[in-house]
Write a protein that binds this DNA or RNA. Structure first.
Length: 503
RNA sequence: GAUCUGUUAGCUCAGUCGGUAGAGCAACGGCCUUUUAAGCCGUGGGUCUUGGGUUCGAGUCCCAAACAGAUCACCA
């Protein structure tokens, strides 16, 4: 327990004083609410009769004391509303202690209070609640940052320190309504995507988070241990291989929103746990999937933002379909005037050196092409763009391209220079899949700790026969960042991972 | 992982050349019965992130550490 500040001591003293007066600062009874701040301000002028007796609860956010009367603001989940407390109204008799002591002396900014009264409009034109009854619902013992906004919309003393905001997100949510809005939009995004998939009759499923063998992506896992079975378990890095087993099992379409866990670096675009949405649809290919994704994103974003355009920094991004489609090789040609097709490893390395792209001896042709793309092309892809047809070495779970040797049927969707979706025509040939896993094992033997492992049960499922299928993964955090114009993943995660503070 | 920047009151921030620690808001005591970043008068509140060092003397200079942010590299 830390030593108490002056303000904390004063609040604890107020708490004790209330108790001595027989007032429970944390009453157990439900407090019936029949209105909220937003709908009162929205509807009062059209229908004043409906607000002659309101009961509302919220957090006390500001007090403008004028002696025997007082204006204050309370905040509920929908916003703020001004209240007007007049001494002779709340204390009609001789005894003025409710006003003088309970309200003015022992109630503080941050306390959660319940009140009853009628709605009126002040001389200054602000819709307010004229209070006839008020009571403490929960005493706040820790002073809240005071953020004020003036008539010009200028914010004073904003609570802005990211560390404080992430470590004490509840405080951020109380005093920064614009941050609350991010999480409302995040929820709407997931809701609208789910609605879209459900309309198509694709099935929402849940697959294991704890996996005996991690697979489906190239990444280092978190390892844990199951006591009763006495076996190691891994937190999933992807759910791809389980979702495909469900397509083998006969579902036409399955999808899952879920947390993935990757034991890697943290920065403003990476958190150790993140949310992805993966979907697999039978009898489709990646060309179909491109059309599905652009149709879905245009609709979902329009529903949430009112139009398909989103402002991110200085870029206005337009999610109206169709999105540009560009093969990886053509994209490199367009932005560098260099044609990687048919080039040898040495020729590619020479080009990388000429462009100051870092390379090392272990990189093969596929990896070098990926480096060139990442270093010289990605930054140009601001408007939604599908990059298609990737080198086979990097993509062990996608089907070989129908016409182009050495490539797979894969696309990634780039928006604002970042990858937000990844999709394949899924590999359903069990012989080829086994060969791809064996190639991965060779990488692992050379020390690649992100190489995929041989998953015999997954291979067995493919041997039973998986229909031709297209699959897609979308990074929900990154899509939320785009949708809300945020540049740090921590801003779209309620509780981002933070290093512990050592006392 | 590298580089740079930051850490001072509950919050937002000043702090000069190394010489008794400052402001606004919040808090506390007054005045004020339609104010709105309310106002007016008065008061209190600090292990200057932590640990070393230099110095008669360190918030300030030096070294190290912790945490955070930005930029870069890698991963979604």
């Amino acid at each position: 327990m830390h030593s108490l500040s002056e303000q904390e001591i004063i609040r604890r003293n107020s708490l004790a004083a209330l108790e001595e007066m027989g007032i429970n600062p944390y009453p157990p009874e439900a407090f019936e609410v029949n209105a909220n701040s937003f709908e009162i301000k929205q509807n009062f002028e059209n229908n004043p009769d409906a607000y002659k007796s309101v009961s509302i609860a919220g957090r006390l956010m500001m007090i403008r004391d004028m002696g025997k009367a007082c204006f204050a603001e309370i905040q509920d989940s929908k916003g703020k509303i001004q209240i007007y407390v007049k001494r002779d109204e709340v204390c009609p008799g001789e005894d003025k202690t409710l006003y003088d002591l309970v309200f003015k002396k022992y109630m503080d900014i941050g306390d959660i209070i319940g009140l009853k009264g009628y709605v009126f409009k002040t001389k200054m034109g602000e819709i307010s609640i004229h209070v006839s009854h008020l009571q403490m619902l929960s005493k706040s013992l820790h002073p809240l940052p005071i953020v004020k906004t003036d008539a010009d919309g200028q914010t004073h003393d904003a609570f802005t320190d990211p560390e404080q905001r992430y470590r004490h997100r509840y405080v951020d949510l109380i005093v920064n309504p614009q941050h609350r809005e991010i999480f409302v939009k995040r929820s709407q995004l997931i809701h609208e995507m789910r609605m879209y998939f459900n309309e198509k009759n694709w099935l929402e499923v849940e697959t294991p988070v704890l996996q005996g063998m991690h697979g489906g992506a190239a990444a280092r896992p978190f390892k844990t241990h199951h006591n009763a079975l006495d076996i190691p378990l891994f937190l999933r890095i992807a759910n791809e291989l389980y979702l495909k087993r469900l397509i083998v099992g006969g579902f036409d379409g399955v999808y899952e929103f879920g947390k993935m866990f990757r034991n890697e670096g943290m920065d403003r675009t990476h958190n150790p746990e993140f949310t992805s949405m993966e979907i697999y649809v039978a009898y489709k290919d990646y060309i179909w999937m491109m059309e599905m994704v652009e149709t879905m994103l245009e609709r979902v974003i329009t529903k949430i933002n009112g139009n398909p355009k989103v402002q991110v920094g200085s870029n206005e991004i337009n999610f109206t379909k169709p999105y540009r489609r560009l093969s990886m090789y053509d994209a490199i040609k367009e932005y560098t005037n260099f044609d990687v097709e048919g080039k040898s490893e040495e020729e590619l390395k020479a080009f990388c050196r000429s462009k100051n792209i870092e390379i090392d001896a272990s990189m093969g042709v596929g990896k070098l092409i990926d480096e060139i793309f990442g270093g010289l092309v990605e930054k140009h892809l601001i408007q939604p763009t599908y990059i298609t047809d990737y080198p086979i070495e990097m993509t062990p779970l996608a089907k070989k391209h129908r016409t182009k040797a050495g490539l797979v049927e894969r696309f990634e969707l780039y928006v604002n220079a970042k990858e937000i979706a990844n999709a394949y025509t899924e590999l359903n040939d069990p012989i080829d899949q086994r060969q791809r896993f064996e190639d991965q094992l060779k990488l692992a033997a050379r020390g690649d700790d992100e190489a995929m492992l041989m998953d015999e049960d997954f291979l067995l499922s493919l041997e039973y026969g998986m229909p031709p299928t297209s699959g897609l993964g979308i990074g929900i955090d990154r899509l939320t960042m785009l949708l809300t114009g945020q540049e740090a993943i921590q801003e779209v995660l309620l509780f981002p991972q933070m290093k512990p503070l050592i006392k």
